[in-house]
Each structure stands twice: as structure tokens, then as C-alpha cells.
């Protein structure tokens, strides 16, 4: 009996994809919510701030869905 290298590789790939995606989504959300209200920000027009906030909300929702799937795996 040897170690199941294929399964180990699958674990590494799935975990890396999930972890990096969630961390990046939360990081982007924080950047989006950091957009200062009431004035223009770098590279964004007048509607940039609200756009950044909307994108931040989307990022959080996406991260929430992945976390929710993780919760489902724990509970299932």
C-alpha cells in the first residue's frame, strides 16, 4: 500500500483554489469598501465609488457562497 498521490494532489489543488479565491474576494471587497465616499478615486469616474462598493458586495456574496458550501460539507 502506498500513499495516494493523486488524491493528495487533488486536495492541494482544490484547497489552493478555494482558499486563494476566498482570500482574494475578501481582499477585493475590503478595497471596494475602502473607496472614499463623496470624491473621485484613482481611475474611477463619478460613479466609481458606488461601482466599487457594488463590486465589493458582489465579492462578499461570492465568498459567502464558497463559505456556505464549506459549511454544507461540514454539516452533510
Amino acid at each position: 500500500m502506498g500513499i495516494d498521490w493523486a488524491t493528495l494532489a487533488a486536495i492541494a489543488v482544490v484547497a489552493a483554489a478555494a482558499a486563494v479565491t476566498v482570500v482574494l474576494l475578501v481582499a477585493f471587497a475590503i478595497v471596494g469598501f475602502s473607496a472614499p465616499s463623496g470624491r473621485r478615486i484613482d481611475g474611477l469616474g463619478d460613479g466609481g465609488v458606488s461601482g466599487a462598493r457594488a463590486a465589493a458586495v458582489l465579492c462578499l456574496v461570492a465568498a459567502g457562497l464558497i463559505v456556505g458550501y464549506g459549511l454544507y460539507l461540514i454539516l452533510a
Binding site: A10, I11, V14, A15, A16, A18, A19, V22, V23, G70, L73, I74
Partner: peptide, 9 residues
């Protein structure tokens, strides 16, 4: 987040 992802997967 990494720990949770590795443990669950």
C-alpha cells in the same frame, strides 16, 4: 481560510 479549505477538501 487555508486550514479550513485543506481540512474540508
Amino acid at each position: 481560510t487555508t486550514s479550513a479549505a485543506v481540512i474540508l477538501s
